[in-house]
């Protein structure tokens, strides 16, 4: 098994997460249990072969916290929106499948964007094209071209926020070059 070594620093978030899951499942966060959990986490991460997740090495907590708050708000909004559409529109709802090209080609970023997009109002990932990094989104209640444009902009805004949280330097620079002000909020 040959595998490119990834640095301990990029692996650390995964190990911390595994230890947290271990502690939560044992309902025991005493130091002894956590050390044992860390040992198992290291063994698991070393033995079981998975393609390494390529973290960019930077994570902006100050941008992550408002993003999480906005995200939770959108999850709530999504639930009520779907409920409203289910009750009042029902069978006559109009949808669309929209292709949204993403900026980033990193697997992690495409996955994260897809996840967030699937949980916020009105969108669901139908298909992912890795070679061109394009998401095909199924939009609920998309009636015309302006709705399509709105959906596309929302997806790209989400990706921009994620890049600002944990994108690589190169992605950040591309974002800046595109004319996204760095001070722009996370909400669309």
């Amino acid at each position: 098994m040959s595998r490119r070594r990834i640095s301990f620093r990029t692996e650390l978030p995964l190990l911390v997460w595994l230890v947290v899951v271990w502690g939560a499942l044992w309902r025991d966060f005493s130091p002894g249990n956590l050390v044992f959990g860390a040992l198992i986490a290291v063994i698991v991460a070393r033995i079981f072969y998975l393609p390494p997740v390529e973290l960019s090495g930077r994570f902006n907590v100050l941008r992550a916290i408002p993003f999480v708050v906005v995200f939770l708000g959108k999850v709530v909004a999504a639930s009520f929106q779907v409920m409203y559409l289910a009750i009042f529109r029902g069978p006559s709802v109009t949808n669309a499948v929209v292709a949204v090209p993403l900026r980033s080609h990193s697997d992690l970023m495409v996955t994260a964007t897809g996840h967030v997009i699937s949980l916020i109002p009105g969108s669901l990932v139908v298909e992912v094209d890795r070679s061109t990094s394009t998401l095909y989104i199924h939009g609920l209640n998309v009636r015309n071209d302006s709705d399509t444009a709105k959906l596309r902009r929302e997806v790209q805004d989400t990706e921009a926020s994620l890049i600002r949280i944990m994108g690589t330097r190169a992605e950040m620079d591309a974002l800046q070059a595109e004319g996204w002000p760095a001070t722009r909020g996370v909400s669309s």
């Binding site: 999850v75 999504a78 639930s79 779907v82 409920m83 289910a86 949808n95 109002p121 009105g122 669901l124």
Partner: peptide, 22 residues
């Protein structure tokens, strides 16, 4: 209600994912 009332599979997936997570 969404599962019952929406017309096709993908609209139903919207109903099956979002309200249930919340």
């Amino acid at each position: 209600i969404g599962l019952l009332r929406f017309p096709d599979l993908m609209s139903r997936m919207h109903a099956a994912t979002k309200p249930q997570v919340l």
